[in-house]
Amino acid sequence: MQRSLTFNIFRHNPQDPASVPRMDTFRLDETDSMTLFIALHRLREEQDPSLKFDFCCRAGVCGSCAMVINGRPGLACHTKTRDLPAAITLLPLPVFRLVGDLAVDTGTWFRAMYQRTESWIHTRAEFDPAAQEARMENEVANAIYELDRCIECGCCVAACGTANLRPDFLAPAGFIRVARFAADPRDQRTDADFYEIIGSDEGIFGCMGLLACEDVCPKHLPLQNQLGYLRRKMGLTVLKRLLPFGR
């Protein structure tokens, strides 16, 4: 039987001095194969054209449409209404600056992360256009790709206890980026170099181990594993610094 869905949606327009944060209620009849992408666009086009939210690829690959869906961060585009109760509450992701209603500014946050982690290959090798490519084992390429699959949607950041408490926390998305370069033989940075980036309370040691990050990751990245791996690696790096024979 067709359901009537009730949407409770957070509303606030920071650009309008008269705007006060509030919740608005909308009703919509459910249709087959309805996703939040379809539902939110119908609400905007049929009921309230001022409704603000972000979508881009609408295919789960670009990371634009993360929001808090009935209490849980997730991608709206691949959330099917049939998997939700008839009452649906939508909130913007916490931690990120609000653009309006459900839209938040992930771009600024992630650009700062690239700068902090120096999210690029560090190598002294020069590219030679006349040479054959350097060889790589296919398994290594696959392993890098697995860690490179983050779509920067911000779900893990929004679900992270530490990130919600301290804005300078690098957060799981930052750690997986470091792990991606640590796994890449083309990057010549050492453990000591990575320690400079993540060996602090704003880095890997600030994690409280709640591990909601992995639960909410829409790409099912191995955030927990990589966190443990980086912590062990960084712990060893500290030990080596403390012990005279490790220097």
């Binding site: 490519e133 390429a141 083309r186 990057d187």
Partner: peptide, 18 residues
């Protein structure tokens, strides 16, 4: 072909021949 190799140099994890 040169551009693909350049991308490999910059960090693209292209699949490789086994």
């Amino acid at each position: 072909p040169i551009e693909m190799r350049r991308l490999a140099h910059w960090g693209v994890p292209w699949n490789r021949v086994v």
